[in-house]
Write a protein that binds this DNA or RNA. Structure first.
Length: 871
RNA sequence: GCGGGCGUGGCGGAAUGGUAGACGCCGGGGACUUAAAAUCCCCUGAGCUUUGCUCGUGCGGGUUCGAGUCCCGCCGCCCGUACCA
């Protein structure tokens, strides 16, 4: 070892080739070893790997390499979530083919990933746009279709009339299409849906078993599923209402389509009853009005009145953000209709109200101002009675309200037969009464909607359905799969190119043989990512996966990705896994045993205010000279404002390109930086000083490794202890995903070894350090391992054994306190008796000075830790 | 509004109720060098009457021999979100 510098530009490539040639990270499902499946969320092939990817995959890589060293057969695959809109946008803007654009991006990003030296099993790589992948997806879709989990229905979508395309909710900005800027229209289209609601209860219940998921994600999913229990019942209306035009379901999109609300019971050509849903049937005696949504059939029926129509219009204009809703005023329109209270017979006024949503429950509510804050505000504004029906105790039955509704628990008052019951008892009593008298039923309502999977786009998995003139929608026969996307495609006009293609959609009915049309919609890309982890585990040619192979690897032991997928992707994958289990394809319900959501990579921003326009102009870090005092622009040497540390984004120009950093400092320095300092779930602020420090440490370790002397003799017990304690601690930290702490331990041991005199212990410590560094800085570790004369790969080496006897020190530092304040520290033998420790403490001059002769009332001794004297 | 998270040096952050600030970055001083880079050593929470003492983990209380950690009440920031009946 004569080289004084570690040269990553040579070493990185050397070891990356060595791993590839040896198949070091190829997972063998036939291995007798215990299995470990480590997975990071696969990337969309946008064209470039960014720092967020690097951080995400580095964490998974450390786990994968560590698990391998611990004797597991590790599956750590990588692939590409390759369908989706950006490819079509590129096709429209640059005239390239979406497939070609995607393939080129994949090639580029794969090369980038390989330069970072990730321990990936590239033999299992696939892209979701491979016909080999999506053909199996089509087969699974048909399996679910046959199991009755797929259905078709008319649903409203956001339609961009200029681009002639459907927009997701996120693509509608202020009511206009994000690309065209055109006013978005509501359109009704026949769309395919997956029955995720069949699994709502199971998906909710399953969250309880996911102990290694972040509490936050479980709560988000719980809220999204949104289970509530209550009573659905109907009021008799004072006068029948003629049915008007425009009765239909509310606005919705493919992503969260809304089934038509249960139609209120109807008389002949009229509405005689008003159905409402409440989670507080116990408060029914407090109802003083009813409120219906602006698009409720009754409101629509009254829309012939210009005043009603105007009010409905006003409701639709309201803002939808949470912040806006919070301050939005409750608005109502009093209709001439009244509703008869089922117990008191009182006539309650029926309002059209802006705070009632057609999409939830029945689109109508009973208003109980005393015990619902919205109803309280509404009643206050429109002078409606506010009755108390729940009180802290019966004596408070007529206590006044203090400016707000009381939604809490208590005892029922002013409520006839419910008086004296608890809230819970009264709920049950009212539901029982309603059911026995036939005017209502107990009901569970879910927020979760069925999953609309139709997309009017080219670059996705074709939905394997044929629309027959005689037999309606018919599944494509299995022997005709896959339905492959046509290559000759024209993006020169707006709209779905599949629909416009001259021949593709023309086929024959599988039943009658008569001419028929293919479904031209493609599947939501979330379908692609709902089962890719199964395909990684097993990829036979003739079917989506082999259940026995899948069983060897699943569930994923560590799933790592961004919090932005907390709901949709993770819920859909959980649903899809359950659906496959439901039809007997697999024997696992929860795909991801543990989930980890990593923080973002952030960077400070550099900007100047453009005087003319009054807006900030941002500069990239490469154009700025940053010192500890501030920052100046390289171009003119004048200062720029150093802004907050925020997520890297192109618009703020605070992006750092991984390739440039790797070229400069090597893969290991970047990997080390990704693991250092910040806890992995928190944001990681990128800084030049930080990466330079990491690059320095790589060299510092290299110098230490270069000083390795296999023949050194002599024992250094203290260093042996430090070594073994560090091995154990780093292992525990990695297993807990506390990478920043593992990094700190390695720094500590490095410092200790550097200071130690040559000995066999020191050489052993250096060997241990090479192993500890191997999962994090694999290129450096391999280079050092080879230089030490090994002909094997350290990636294949076992994690060092720990001698338990060396984990405990034989001397400990005892804190000497007086009244809980530190007065001295003394060393004592490990395991010294309480009496000895007390005597030792009393010998401390500092302690005696502090006590100053005061009588000792109590002595607290914590063995091996401290002595506290109380006076 | 609701739900979740966070608040510790100049910065990122450590700390099973038991020595607050591990480790890294920045900064200061020194060694080596003709010089620079690289490297190495020392210092680096504030203050004071400096063998030591006082203060100090967002604020105010409490529990405890002992609180960054537990409890109660506030404040601030971040993320999520659904006026869900």
């Amino acid at each position: 070892m004569s080289d004084t510098r570690f040269d990553p530009s040579v070493a990185d490539g050397r070891w990356q080739r060595a791993w590839a040639e040896a198949g070091t990270f190829t997972a063998d499902s036939a291995s007798p070893k215990p299995k470990s499946y480590i997975l990071e969320m696969f990337p969309y092939p946008s064209g470039r790997i960014h720092m967020g990817h690097v951080r995400n995959y580095t964490m998974g890589d450390v786990l994968a390499r560590y698990q391998k060293m611990r004797g597991f057969e590790v599956l750590h695959p990588m692939g590409w979530d390759a369908f989706g809109m950006p490819a079509e946008n590129a096709a429209m803007e640059k005239g390239v083919h979406p497939g070609g654009w995607t393939r080129a991006n994949i090639a580029q990003m794969k090369a980038q990933l390989q330069r970072i030296g990730f321990a990936l099993d590239w033999t299992r790589e696939f892209a979701t746009c491979d016909p080999e992948y999506y053909s199996h997806e089509q087969a699974l879709f048909l399996d679910l279709y046959e199991a009755g989990l797929v259905y078709r229905k008319e649903s409203t979508v956001n339609w961009d009339p200029v681009d002639m395309t459907v927009l997701a909710n996120e693509q509608v900005i202020d009511g206009k299409g994000w690309r065209s800027g055109a006013e978005v229209e509501k359109r009704k289209l026949n769309q395919w849906f997956l029955k995720i609601t069949d699994f709502a209860d199971d998906l909710l219940e399953g969250l309880g078993s996911l102990e290694d998921w972040p509490e936050k994600v479980r709560l988000m999913q719980e809220n999204w599923i949104g289970k509530s229990q209550g009573l659905e019942f109907s009021f008799e209306l004072s006068k029948p209402l003629p049915l008007g035009e425009g009765v239909g379901d509310g606005g919705s999109t493919p992503a969260d389509a809304v089934p038509p609300p249960p139609a209120p019971p109807q008389g002949e050509g009229s509405l005689q009853r008003l159905a409402v849903y409440t989670t507080r049937p116990d408060t029914i005696f407090g109802a003083s009005f009813c409120a219906i949504a602006a698009d409720h059939p009754i409101a629509q029926g009254l829309a012939g009145d210009p005043a009603v129509a105007a009010f409905i219009d006003q409701c639709k204009k309201g803002a939808t953000t949470a912040a806006a809703l919070e301050t939005a005023e409750k608005l109502g329109f009093r209709t001439p209709i009244t509703a008869k209270h089922p117990f008191t017979g009182a006539d309650l006024p029926v309002f059209i109200a802006n705070f009632v949503l057609m999409e939830y429950g029945t689109g109508a509510v009973m208003g109980v101002p005393g015990h619902d804050q919205r109803d309280f505000e509404f009643a206050t504004k429109y002078g409606l009675p506010i009755a108390r029906v729940v009180a802290a105790d019966p004596a408070q039955a007529d206590a006044p309200f203090k400016g707000a509704a009381e939604a809490g628990d208590g005892v029922i008052v002013n409520s006839d037969f419910l008086n004296g019951m608890t809230v819970e008892e009264a709920k049950q009593a009212v539901i029982a009464r309603a059911e026995s008298e036939g005017w209502g039923t107990g009901k569970t309502v879910w927020r979760l909607r069925d999953w609309g999977v139709s997309r009017q786009r080219y670059w996705g998995t074709p939905i394997p359905i044929i629309h027959s003139p005689d037999h309606g929608p018919v599944p494509v026969p299995r022997d005709q799969l896959p339905v492959v996307l046509p290559e000759d495609i024209d993006f020169s006009e707006p709209g779905n190119p599949l629909d416009r293609h001259p021949t593709w959609k023309h086929t024959t009915c599988p039943i009658s043989g008569k001419p028929a049309l293919r479904e031209t919609d493609t599947l939501d890309t979330f379908v692609d990512s709902s089962w890719y982890f199964l395909r990684f585990a097993s990829q036979p040619a003739d079917k989506p996966f082999d259940p026995e192979e899948v069983a060897k690897w699943m569930p994923v032991q560590h799933y790592i990705g961004g919090i932005e997928h907390a709901i949709l992707h993770l819920l859909y994958a959980r649903f899809w896994t359950r659906a496959l289990a439901h039809i007997g394809k697999i024997d696992v319900k929860e795909p991801f045993a543990a989930l980890f959501t990593q923080g973002m990579v952030t960077h400070e921003t550099y900007s100047r205010i453009d005087e003319a326009r009054g807006v900030p102009v941002f500069f990239g870090p490469e154009d700025v000279n940053r010192t500890s005092e501030g920052a100046t622009l390289l171009a003119d040497g004048a200062p720029v404002e150093v802004g907050r540390v925020i997520k890297m984004s192109k618009s703020k120009k605070n992006v750092v390109d991984p390739d440039a950093i790797i070229a400069r400092h090597g893969a290991d320095a970047v990997r080390w930086f990704m693991l250092s300092d910040s806890p992995p779930e928190r944001d990681l602020p990128w800084s030049d000083a930080g990466i330079e420090g990491c690059a320095r440490f790589v060299q510092r370790l290299w110098r230490l490794f270069s000083a390795y002397d296999a023949d050194a003799t002599g024992e250094d017990r203290a260093l042996d202890r430090k070594t073994h304690q560090t091995i154990a601690a780093v292992a525990a930290d990695i297993e807990a995903l506390g990478f920043n702490k593992a990094v700190a331990r390695i720094y500590e041991l490095t410092g200790a070894v550097e200071k130690a005199a040559p000995s066999a212990s020191r050489s052993a410590a250096i060997r241990a350090l090479v192993h500890l560094a191997a999962p994090m800085m694999p290129h450096l570790a391999e280079e050092a391992w080879a230089a030490m004369g090994n002909t094997t790969l350290i990636a294949d080496a076992p994690w060092p054994e720990v001698d338990p006897a060396l984990l405990v020190d034989d001397e400990v530092t005892i804190a000497i306190q007086h009244m809980g304040k530190l007065r001295d520290t003394l060393t004592a033998p490990k395991g010294a008796s309480k009496e000895d420790l007390e005597a030792l403490a009393m010998s401390s001059a500092n302690l005696q000075r502090s006590i100053n002769g005061a009588p000792i009332r109590k002595v607290i001794v914590v063995p091996d830790r401290l002595v506290n004297i109380v006076t």
